[in-house]
Design a protein around this nucleic acid. Structure first.
Length: 560
DNA sequence: GGCTCCGACTCAGAAAGATAAGT
DNA sequence: GACTTATCTTTCTGAGTCGGAGC
């Protein structure tokens, strides 16, 4: 499917699908599950009860202790109440959801305890739904749909310090839904008694279904799976653009270094920002509406308060200390030595400014991207992230792979290379809840193994001594087998220690995002072919489906 | 030209669920 | 071999990027 088949902007000629699956309707709680207000049992109306269950289900979560979450929730909940309920329930702190919460926990537990047959039945039902709704036909190909289920109602959970956390995400009805498919396809039927908001036939877009969400007023879509032609082609294009950047990146770097000296403030800011984007793989940083989302920034939206300048720090000159919240409120913290000119420019940009002022006051993403477009066709800020991630992987693999290593050791090298990229892109995760415990378990295993090794060595020693005295076949054999035992235990110990290092290094690093979105899969495929590593060791089934194009295309001599 | 708004798409980590490994 | 625990995979949906329309 690599060749361009359609004129500009046309995404398909034929599109047929079954429409979305809606969230199951609300099932009222059994009579014996009580809600208490101010210590007294209170029977809620169905609508108010449903919203209450959303809160009850999250009761153990930290969210429900947050002031903003509670305030937003209570406000939206009251909108669903009858006037009597409204006049009674005036204080969230007097609401007791614990019984409801226990009921849901018991239900989860019961689900876990279900018999094999029951579980099988559910599985089969899910498979049936997947078969019916999970696929569409786009231009002679049956393609998997990514998210064919409509998001159920619930409480909005933003990331970080989101001003809208706790608000009610309303139930989506067929009347909210826009269907997109081709005219000559079998148009999906709305559920009985309902109709779609609209049916359109727009082949300049890739989505099948859309609706407007009520928290931010943004549009949500149902689109195809990453394994589909339309997504794969786009992915391939993305890496091809990054490879084109490789060819002219030196020129661009020289250019922005020149621009640091420009007479125009705007040009200088643009050049310093681009330097950060290139060197540190920062995101572009679009401006955001204040108060609508969590306060996070990217490169162009950095504020004075997000950087500190150190003329000298820990023996290095011209160090910039970054500390800000990026996408998903993930903290970016880094101390970077920069060139003198960059440093001087930053001092200039910060002159006479307040901490909350924009660092690059003459710059935004659209100015930056327009400039990049002039430097190379199709170049935007995010291409630098893709380029630097992929080139780093390729370099690291070259550097770290030891030809004499066995397969597990080579895979460890791969993971290390992957990790270098994840660190560059600042892909972090919360340390797993069980991390400390798991680490301690592993450590005690290592300790036990060490003791075992000491024992085995002692035994070997005495067997040797024994053999020296006796000089018979039997004791010789015993020495041999003891030797093997020691070796085996040493290997096991080493394996455990490697595992411990690997896990420790990975504590706060998320490898998945870079693997899925930034690393040209052809680099990995080529590496596997070169070293005889089965591709399954690097990519699981889903990933192999997504990267099928690369697995097909790349040979062992592929160069990014 | 530049600003705002919005549509369409990619990228993001948490949580749930499934499977493998260990006891 | 049953049960528990650790790890891997999948699902979910929120949060970005970027381009284009309209003024």
């Amino acid at each position: 499917w690599e060749e361009e088949r359609y004129p500009e902007g046309i995404k398909w000629k034929f599109l047929e699908h079954k429409g979305p699956i809606f969230a199951p309707p609300y099932e009222p709680l059994p009579e014996n599950v009580k809600f208490y207000y101010d210590g007294k049992v209170m029977k809620l109306s169905t609508k108010a009860e449903e919203v209450a269950t959303f809160f009850a289900k999250m009761l153990d979560h930290e969210y429900t202790t947050k002031e903003i979450f509670r305030k937003n929730f209570f406000k939206d909940w009251r909108k669903e109440m009858t006037s009597e309920e409204k006049s009674t329930i005036t204080n969230l702190s007097k609401c007791d959801f614990t019984h409801m919460s226990q009921y849901f926990k018991a239900q989860t537990e019961a689900r876990k305890q279900m018999s094999k047959e029951e579980k099988q039945k559910i599985k089969e039902e899910n498979e049936r739904l997947l078969k019916e709704y999970g696929y569409c036909v786009m231009d002679n190909h049956k393609e998997r749909i990514a998210n064919f289920k409509i998001e159920p109602p619930g409480l909005f959970r933003g990331r970080g310090n989101h001003p809208k956390m706790g608000m009610l995400k309303r139930r989506i009805m067929p009347e909210d839904i826009i269907i997109n498919c081709s005219k000559d396809s079998k148009i999906p039927a709305p559920p009985p008694g309902h109709k779609w908001k609209e049916v359109r036939h727009d082949n300049k877009v890739t989505w099948l279904v859309s609706w407007t969400e009520n928290i931010q007023g943004s549009i949500k879509y149902i689109m195809l799976n990453p394994s589909s032609r339309i997504k794969g082609e786009k992915d391939w294009q993305k890496y091809e653009t990054a490879r084109r950047l490789k060819k002219c990146v030196d020129k661009i770097r020289n250019q922005y270094r020149e621009d640091w000296k420009s007479k125009e403030m705007k040009v200088r800011q643009r050049a310093v920002a681009l330097y950060f984007i290139d060197k540190l793989a920062l995101r572009a940083g679009n401006e955001k509406e204040e108060g609508e989302t969590a306060d996070t920034v990217g490169c162009c939206s950095l504020r004075v308060e997000h950087i500190k300048l150190h003329p000298e720090l820990d023996g290095q000159e011209y160090v910039v200390e970054f500390d800000f919240l990026g996408k998903d409120s993930i903290r970016y913290y880094n101390k970077v030595p920069v060139e003198k000119r960059v440093f001087k420019n930053l001092q200039l940009f910060m002159e006479n400014k307040q901490p909350e002022d924009d660092l690059f006051d003459r710059l935004n993403t659209s100015i930056l991207n327009k400039h990049l477009q002039d430097l190379m066709e199709g170049l935007t800020a995010k291409v630098f992230r893709t380029y630097n991630a992929s080139i780093t992987l390729q370099q690291q693999l070259k550097e770290l792979t030891n030809p004499d290593d066995n397969i597990p050791a080579k895979i460890l090298s791969y993971n290390r290379a992957n990790r270098a990229v994840a660190i560059l892109c600042n892909h972090q995760r919360a340390p797993p809840k069980t991390f400390e415990k798991a680490m301690m378990n592993l450590q005690s295993k290592i300790d036990a193994k060490k003791e075992q090794l000491a024992d085995a060595r002692r035994e070997l020693k005495s067997a040797k001594a024994d053999a020296k005295v006796r000089r018979d076949e039997k004791s010789k054999k015993s020495v041999e087998s003891k030797k093997k035992a020691v070796q085996r235990i040493e290997e096991q110990l080493m394996k455990l220690e490697v595992q411990a290092t690997d896990r420790e290094e990975n504590k706060q690093i998320a490898l998945g995002t870079s693997k899925l979105n930034y690393l040209d899969p052809r680099i990995s495929v080529a590496w596997c072919k070169k070293w005889g590593i089965p591709i399954e060791k690097i990519y699981n089934k889903t990933q192999r489906e997504k990267f099928a194009w690369a697995i097909d295309m790349a040979e062992e001599d592929y160069e990014f």
